[in-house]
C-alpha cells in the first residue's frame, strides 16, 4: 500500500446521519412529505376529531325523529332531514363515529388474530404452520363479502357479530402478510446470530423480528382498514350491516337514495344521499395516500423512471 493513501476504517465513506430525537425525525420526514400525504394526514385528523367529539358537534341526536321527513337544506337543518325526520347533518357526524369506530375495532381484532398467528406460523414452520396456512387458503377461496353475508344470515346482524365476522375473515389476509414478512426476517443471519447466542424465543421475537416487520404491518393496517371500512359500508348499504337507529354512512345512502330521482327538481336534495358515500370515498383516498407515502419512505422504494 502506498504512503499517500493510508487506510483508516473510521474514514471509510458511509452515509452518516446527524442523530436526532425521534420527534424531530418525524417532523423532518413530515416536512419532506408530498402534498398528497399531507392532504391525507389532515383529512384523517379531521375525521378522527369529528368521530371523537361527535356528541359535541352534532346539533341533534342521531335517533331524534321529532322533525318532518325530507325537510330541505337550511332552516335549522343544515342538510335537511331524512326519510323519517332525523337531522341529516347530525347523523352524518355520528356516522363518522360509528362507521370509523366499528371499522377500527374490526381491523384491530383482525390484526390481533392474524398477526399473532402469522408470526407463530413463520417461526414454528412445523405442522401448526401447515394447518393454519391450508385453513387460510380455504377461507380465502370464498369471497369475503359472500362469506360475511352467509355468516350474517346465520348469526343475525348485531354490531359485535359484524365486528367478529369481518375481523376473522379479514385476519386471513393479515395472517398471510405477517407470515410472509416474518419468513423474510426469520431467515436473516442476525436471527441466526441470536439463536447461536442462545437467546430465548420470546427475546428473538420481541427484539429481532418484531421491529423489522412493523413497517409493512403498519402500512397493511392502513390498507386493511380501508378495505374493512368499505366492506362494512357495503354491508350496511345492503341492509345487513350496522342496524338502525345507529347512524352509519352505508345505510344512510340507501335510506335516502330515492331522492336522487328528483335531481331535476331539487339538486341539493339529490346530493344529500351522496354525501355519506363521498365521506367514505374521501377517507379511503386519504388513507391510501398516507400508506403510499409511508411505504415509499420505509421500504426505500425508488421512483421508477
Amino acid at each position: 500500500m502506498s504512503e499517500t493513501e493510508t487506510y483508516s476504517a473510521t474514514a471509510e465513506v458511509a452515509q452518516v446521519r446527524q442523530r436526532t430525537s425521534r420527534g424531530k425525525r418525524i417532523w423532518i420526514d413530515l416536512k419532506k412529505a408530498p402534498i398528497s400525504a399531507w392532504f391525507g394526514l389532515i383529512v384523517i385528523s379531521i375525521y378522527g376529531l369529528v368521530a371523537v367529539f361527535a356528541p359535541l358537534l352534532a346539533p341533534y341526536d342521531q335517533a331524534d325523529t321529532s322533525f318532518g321527513a325530507y325537510l330541505p337544506w337550511g332552516d335549522g337543518h343544515l342538510l335537511g332531514t331524512d326519510q323519517i325526520g332525523r337531522d341529516f347533518f347530525s347523523r352524518l357526524i355520528y356516522g363518522a363515529r360509528n362507521t370509523i369506530g366499528i371499522a377500527l375495532a374490526t381491523t384491530l381484532l383482525s390484526f390481533l388474530v392474524g398477526g399473532s398467528l402469522g408470526l407463530m406460523a413463520a417461526i414454528s414452520r412445523n405442522w401448526i404452520d401447515q394447518v393454519l396456512s391450508r385453513l387460510v387458503d380455504v377461507l380465502m377461496a370464498i369471497p369475503s363479502l359472500i362469506f360475511a353475508l352467509m355468516l350474517l344470515s346465520i348469526f343475525g346482524s348485531t354490531t359485535w357479530g359484524l365486528i367478529v365476522i369481518i375481523a376473522i375473515l379479514d385476519s386471513t389476509r393479515v395472517f398471510r402478510l405477517t407470515r410472509a414478512v416474518s419468513l423474510n426476517v426469520v431467515v436473516m443471519d442476525y436471527v441466526e446470530v441470536a439463536q447461536l447466542r442462545g437467546e430465548k424465543l420470546g427475546w428473538v421475537m420481541r427484539r429481532e423480528i418484531l421491529p423489522n416487520i412493523l413497517p409493512p404491518l403498519i402500512a397493511e393496517f392502513g390498507l386493511r382498514f380501508s378495505f374493512v371500512f368499505l366492506t362494512i359500508a357495503a354491508l350496511s348499504f345492503l341492509g345487513v350491516g350496522i342496524q338502525p337507529p345507529t347512524a352509519d354512512w352505508g345505510s344512510m345512502v340507501r335510506e335516502n337514495a330515492s331522492l336522487i330521482q328528483f335531481a331535476k327538481y331539487d339538486i341539493l336534495g339529490a346530493i344529500t344521499p351522496l354525501l355519506p358515500a363521498a365521506a367514505i370515498a374521501l377517507l379511503t383516498v386519504a388513507v391510501n395516500f398516507v400508506v403510499d407515502w409511508f411505504l415509499h419512505k420505509t421500504s426505500g422504494l425508488k421512483d421508477e423512471h
Binding site: 380501508s226 368499505l230 359500508a233 357495503a234 331535476k264 339538486i267 358515500a277 383516498v285
Partner: peptide, 23 residues
C-alpha cells in the same frame, strides 16, 4: 383509477344515476 378504487361501488353507481338517469 386510484380514485375509482378508493370509492365504494354504490357511490359510483349513484353518481352515474344522478347524471345519466336523473339529470
Amino acid at each position: 383509477t386510484l380514485t375509482t378504487i378508493a370509492t365504494p361501488e354504490f357511490f359510483v353507481a349513484y353518481i352515474l344515476i344522478l347524471f345519466f338517469a336523473s339529470l
